[in-house]
Amino acid sequence: MSNLLKLIQESRASVLQNWMEGIRDLSRRRGLIDERELEAQSGDVLSAIADVPADTNLSNIDLPAWQTLKELLGTLSAARAVQGFSPSETALFVLSLKQPLFELARKHWGNKANELFSEITLTNDFIDKLALYTTDSYIHGRDQVISRQQEEMLELSTPVVTLWDGIVALPLIGTLDSSRTQVVMESLLQAIVQTNSRVAIIDITGVPTVDTLVAQHLLKTITAARLMGAECILSGIRPQIAQTIVHLGINLEDVTTKAKLSDAFRLALERSGRAVVRVSKANTSAHAAKEL
């Protein structure tokens, strides 16, 4: 299809040189990448273009022959994202290949207007598609990084701890939004099964406010835990939250609540047939839990 492709294959070195001249200032300006690396990258991209069979169609970059090139651009755009390039800078890098290719075409078909026009149009569309592809994969890569980071953050911020054999606690800290509460709900229920815990304490001392949606999520968690055979105790409800809960008309009647985590823990121990006894005045043993 493309005669230009054949030309590129024949004059790889000079195309690369022209391309390098064009992009040197562009990329070096911010000092994010050194020249040798840039040249190596450009060389790779050019090879991936030139190494396809000479009759490969330029107008369809979804052809299997272009797979290597696309993979390379994908890797490159991810690497550049890490180096701190913006997506448009990376796209510009690809787009700047137009200049040397147009020049190549002009040199060859300079006196044949029709051929020159069709080759340039074809090349132009081809490079545009590649640039677009680069931007797309940049965005895709960044989305993945962001959602992975979000998930990790959510998991980190909802640690379920085992307080005692058969008792887990979930000390919540910070503002609860709907999606975080959802994650909390799942990890708590999972922990109940894994640790075989009959009692779970949800401590919201560190939670400044609660809205309707979050309160409902908490209630659903408590109900789900009950369906699984575990009891939840809610502790650390601040006075403002108590007011909100009542104002919103949320029914916490069936939920066991305690003022402090320690009270909830004491109750949890009682529920599992143990009791907290004061052994002596020594403060070290004041909170020792003993089996009945």
């Binding site: 799942e186 229920l189 999972q190 099964v193 109900t223 369906l227 699984m228």
Partner: peptide, 17 residues
């Protein structure tokens, strides 16, 4: 006995407690 977490979450969402 033994209701799985995913089942319990779904059942609550369905409206059955």
């Amino acid at each position: 006995v033994g209701m799985q977490p995913a089942v319990a979450i779904t059942l609550v969402e369905l409206g059955m407690s």
